[in-house]
Nucleic acid binder design. Structure first.
Length: 342
DNA sequence: CGAGCGAGCCGCCACG
DNA sequence: CACGTGGCGGCTCGCT
């Protein structure tokens, strides 16, 4: 009878709020911390319950200067929590965080005791330095993906993913993808319906379309390949519409096929076919951004066999269609775009 | 959407 | 013997 009058006690999901500890440090990226924090806080607000207890924490608690200049107030690192997250930041700050013994010890401890351990953006480097990403798949900001893979060969770096969940270890890509990851955590704990409501409230996607690589600068890696490959790139870019198979590239580079493969792998971490595809994608992206040509023209100019080949390749590499890419990245102003005939 | 095919990739070893 | 190079062959993966 007492139970009947006090229904609240019977609701199954009345457990204690889950402690979400977001670790910050001087020079960290403010959105890495506040984005996920807001997602969890909005989940509380929309559900009308205290599902999450979100706290900013630091090895050196107190005022934390973010890389944008604003300050955060951080509590001491908690001994235990449900979910431990580590923010990213600029290179100097992350390097310092990577060698912070207190933070490192805390991460190792949380990798055992917490239900989830995660990072946002370059926070992956801090997790990696603590050794908790070894043998795992992981994501980080696209600009840091190659460096992470090189510094920590035991990590399978996913350059495209918005976020990666590998067991209890979660890593997210650049900055705002921390929100995407937090949404997935909300979904894991309290269902997709609530997560979708939070996404709507924050005006973000529940499932963000595409891969993060669509934002990276095409072919920034060319300069790393040395003069030999740079000349080859220039040669190839002049004949993108031709076949450009591996044997002819090797011949042009003055190497055997086998050795050419090795050099591509060693200097650019690429394969001949993949590299040519990179060149063609870069050309197609540039044309989509700044020309009004239709897909057939662009496909031909970039060396694809036709529009469908272009569409397939875009889907596989960037996770969206050429048309969607153009709408996202076209240099035209919104006014110009509206001027098209109805 | 699945099966079959061929180009491409890479482990391995031989060579200088 | 270390190191850079080349060729063979099996296997994978993406296209038709």
């Amino acid at each position: 009878m007492a139970q009947m009058t006090n229904k609240r006690e019977n609701v199954p999901n009345m457990q204690k709020p889950k402690l979400i500890a977001i670790a910050v440090f001087d020079g960290c990226q403010i959105l890495d911390a506040t984005g996920p924090a807001q997602a969890f806080a909005t989940a509380n607000a929309l559900s009308g319950r205290a599902l999450f207890d979100v706290r900013l924490v630091a090895a050196a608690p107190g005022q934390i200067a973010t890389n944008g200049g604003m300050r955060l107030l951080a509590e001491p690192l908690p001994r235990t929590c449900h979910t431990a997250l580590v923010a990213g930041g600029d290179e100097m700050a992350v390097t310092a965080a990577m060698s912070d013994r207190g933070l490192r010890k805390w991460i190792v401890a949380q990798s055992k005791s917490a239900k989830r351990l995660g990072s946002v953006c370059s926070g992956a480097f801090v997790l990696a330095a603590a050794g908790v990403l070894d043998g795992r798949r992981a994501a980080t900001h696209w600009a840091g993906a190659d460096t992470l893979a090189k510094m920590f060969p035991d990590i399978a770096v996913d350059r495209d993913a918005i976020y990666v969940e590998d067991g209890k270890i979660w890593t997210s890509a650049g900055i705002t993808t921390g929100i995407d990851m937090a949404l997935a955590m909300v979904a894991q704990d309290h269902g997709r319906t609530l997560a979708a409501k939070v996404a709507r409230q924050l005006v973000v996607y529940m499932h963000r379309p595409g891969h993060q690589s669509q934002f990276s600068a095409p072919l920034e890696l060319q300069s790393r390949g040395g003069a030999r490959l740079e000349r080859l790139a220039a040669w190839a870019e002049g004949r993108l519409h031709e076949t450009l198979d591996a044997p002819s590239l090797a011949e042009q580079a003055g190497m055997s096929l086998r050795n050419f493969h090795r050099h591509m792998k060693a200097t650019l971490n690429a394969t001949p076919k993949r590299w040519v595809e990179d060149l063609r994608l870069a050309r197609a992206r540039a044309l989509l951004e700044s020309s009004g040509q239709d897909l057939a023209q662009i496909a031909r100019a970039a060396g694809f066999s036709g529009p469908d080949h272009l569409i397939k390749t875009f889907d596989r590499r960037l996770g969206l269609t050429p048309g969607a890419y153009r709408r996202l990245h076209a240099a035209k102003t919104p006014l110009e775009r509206e001027r098209r005939p109805q």
